[in-house]
């Protein structure tokens, strides 16, 4: 199903603009992630698509040619997975999953068959007749997904579905969820504040900030060509360099960097993995701390600019705290982006 959103905005009764007018188009079978810090409007947008919030007048939400803007939640035929799962504590796993089918007034035998099918897909067979209160977090999450998918919704909406889980389980379920969503082949919108989650699950990511979409694109495009400093910082943790820019050169306390293009009046950002130790490098820094992270070292450097600069260093050994090192950054790795207004 294709989802077309036009002019979606939300002003809360107090006058706070949670969401500025937004247009989005999501293709059939596409998984789109809404990524952003808390309060950026991503959940509001998702809840508007679900029908749980009313957008400001002038909005239009179209599911495959069917204008649902003024339809209630229950008639939109969506599936939703909530952060807290919202499983019904008064029902068993099976009844939870079958609830949407029961609402469609399907014959009992068909409900049972379709519930079994989804239970199989989500590998919930051993828990089918348990009370939902007796399940672990990961199991609850899968029941929530199965329950949302059983009625074959037109679009699946997921609101931070993994954030209630602990870190180790989250990483595991992230991959599992990505796989399941592809198996279902469903159009899905996935809200998260975790860039790794968005990158792992989504075909396209819409990075949101202060009530609007800052940039939308594939995870790779966002990483390689961020449109704003915010996107660069949020996707891939780019660090702003503090120095003086003169045409295609940046003067830092630690040396002069060559920029890929003239950058007057703009900002320059760099990612930790693009900085390398190079005896012929143009800038110098002093090693402050070295953290061993298994595949690489994370080094904090002083003296390059006023604040600390972090770099990732692969290799079998690392310099020691106190060492002076020369560094180089390939010009094409420097992100020259327009200045942002202070948030």
């Amino acid at each position: 199903m294709t989802l077309t959103l036009t002019n979606i905005a939300k002003t809360f009764p107090g006058g706070t603009k949670a969401l500025l007018p937004t247009d989005l188009e999501i293709a059939k079978g596409e998984i789109l992630s809404l990524l952003g810090p808390s309060g950026c409007g991503k959940s509001t947008l998702l809840r508007i698509i679900a029908g749980l919030e009313t957008p400001d007048p002038g909005a239009s939400i179209v599911f495959d040619g069917d204008d649902v803007t003024h339809q209630s939640v229950e008639s939109r035929k969506i599936g939703m997975v909530f952060q807290s799962y919202a499983l019904f504590p008064n029902m068993s796993v099976r009844s939870n999953i079958g609830y949407g089918l029961k609402m469609q007034k399907l014959p009992k035998a068909e409900i049972a068959a379709r519930v079994d099918e989804v239970i199989g897909l989500c590998q919930l067979a051993p828990y089918a007749d348990r009370a939902v209160t007796a399940l672990s977090g990961g199991q609850k999450q899968r029941v929530a997904l199965a329950r949302a998918m059983a009625p074959r919704p037109r679009v699946l909406l997921l609101d931070e579905p993994l954030s209630a889980l602990d870190a180790a389980l989250r990483n595991h379920l992230r991959d599992e969820l990505a796989l399941l969503l592809r198996q279902f082949g469903i159009t899905a919108i996935f809200v998260t504040h975790d860039q790794d989650e968005a990158m792992a699950i989504a075909d396209r990511v819409a990075v949101m900030s202060q009530g609007q979409v800052a940039q939308i694109g594939t995870p790779e495009a966002l990483y390689r060509n961020p449109a704003t400093g915010f996107v660069a910082r949020f996707v891939g943790d780019a660090m702003p360099l503090e120095g003086r820019i003169e045409r295609a050169h940046m003067h830092l306390p630690g040396g002069v960097l060559t920029l890929p293009q003239a950058g007057d009046g703009q900002q320059v950002l760099v990612r930790a993995e693009d900085i390398s130790i190079d005896p012929q490098g143009p800038i110098t820094g002093r090693v402050e701390t070295v953290t061993f992270l298994g595949t690489h070292y994370r080094i904090a450097l002083s003296g390059v600019m006023a604040g600390p600069l972090f770099m990732l260093h692969a290799g079998l050994s690392a310099p020691k705290p106190g060492d002076e090192v020369r560094l180089s950054i390939p010009p094409e790795a420097l992100l020259v982006l327009p200045m942002e207004m202070a948030a």
């Binding site: 599936g79 949407g100 609402m103």
Partner: peptide
């Protein structure tokens, strides 16, 4: 968390009366 439970039921197609009775 009554509100979320009801939203869950609504997303599965339950109208207000059904939500009251079922949830």
């Amino acid at each position: 968390d009554l509100r979320t439970l009801e939203e869950g039921a609504a997303s599965l197609g339950a109208g207000p009366a059904r939500r009251f009775v079922d949830v």
